[in-house]
Simulated scan of single mutants.
Amino acid sequence: MLKLFRIIAVVICATLICILGTLYSLIRFRHPNNVSVMARWFGRLHGLVGLEVEHRFPANVDEVGPCIYIGNHQNNYDMVTISYMVRPRTVSVGKKSLIWIPFFGILYWATGNIFLDRDNRSKAHSTMTELARRINNEKLSIWMFPEGTRSRGRGLLPFKTGAFHAAIAANVPIVPVICSDTHNKVDLNRKDNGKVICEIMQPIDVSGYTRENVRELADYCHQVMSKRIAELNAEIAQKQEA
């Protein structure tokens, strides 16, 4: 019964956010702060699935400037956990098929996010070039999931290099954003599904990297994020045992 109630509540709330958010975003069409506002709305739904979410922001979070945010992409619960971490003047990059998701697709477009055609490598490359131009000309930050797909309990998947090419081309830092594990943690029939920690890490300078060694940058960021995710998981486990 609790599961059914939660599903209905989440669907209703998410649909209302999409409808009201689309109207809001059309009034401020593709404003650079639209995405962060909508992400915060969705991020406040975590209590509906029984999760307690702690959001950790570094003291210098507002001093970073334009950058490429990279997050770990776990499952559908990302919408109520890590989405809250999206900063002002940040837009995301998503696959073009998102436009066909009822209600959400039009919201994703109206807020000013960028669609990527992953099946067309030449278009994908031109998109990364366009990202670099927009970052510098419009003082935007870009949010990407470099794994390219949900990990669904498989750990942090290998990174694709698009986000790192864009960071090098725009000469802006990479900022990792991580969320502790949620795979198999949520039981919609259980009242309390425990705690999740989301954290924005310190910027990673890309000035020492070029297109030729972009894979090294991607692998380094993967290593840094994987280590910190493990630390957050251990922290939560320790508190649960206490």
Rank of each mutant, 00 (worst) to 15 (best):
C198L: 01
H31I: 01
G112Q: 00
Q240I: 09
G194V: 08
K123W: 09
T90D: 02
R154E: 14
S180P: 05
A163E: 14
R133C: 06
L157E: 04
D187T: 13
I68D: 09
I101S: 03
W109L: 02
G194I: 06
C198W: 02
I17Y: 00
N193L: 05
T161M: 14
N213Y: 06
A169D: 14
E130F: 14
L131H: 05
T127D: 10
R215T: 12
N137D: 14
R87F: 02
E138H: 13
D219V: 03
H165Q: 13
P203Q: 13
G65T: 11
E54Y: 00
H183N: 15
K123E: 14
C18E: 03
V49Q: 01
H73T: 08
E63F: 10
R228I: 01
I12F: 12
V10L: 14
V93F: 07
H165T: 07
S141G: 03
V64L: 10
T129H: 10
D192P: 04
H55V: 07
M79I: 14
V10S: 11
S141N: 11
Q74F: 06
R40T: 00
F42V: 03
N60A: 03
C221N: 05
C13A: 13
P32A: 03
S180L: 05
R118S: 06
P66E: 03
L23P: 07
F57S: 08
Y77M: 15
N34E: 01
S226C: 13
G21M: 00
I8D: 04
I27A: 09
V49C: 04
R152P: 08
K185I: 02
I204A: 07
I229K: 07
V49I: 12
M225F: 04
E216F: 06
H46P: 00
V186M: 01
W100A: 15
I236S: 08
C198A: 06
N189C: 14
L140M: 08
P203I: 07
R152Q: 15
Q240F: 05
A234R: 12
A132D: 14
G21P: 00
Y84R: 02
H222W: 15
S207M: 08
P176T: 01
R134H: 06
F104A: 07
T129G: 13
N120R: 08
K95Q: 09
T161V: 15
Q240W: 03
A59D: 15
K227F: 05
H73F: 06
L16S: 09
H125P: 10
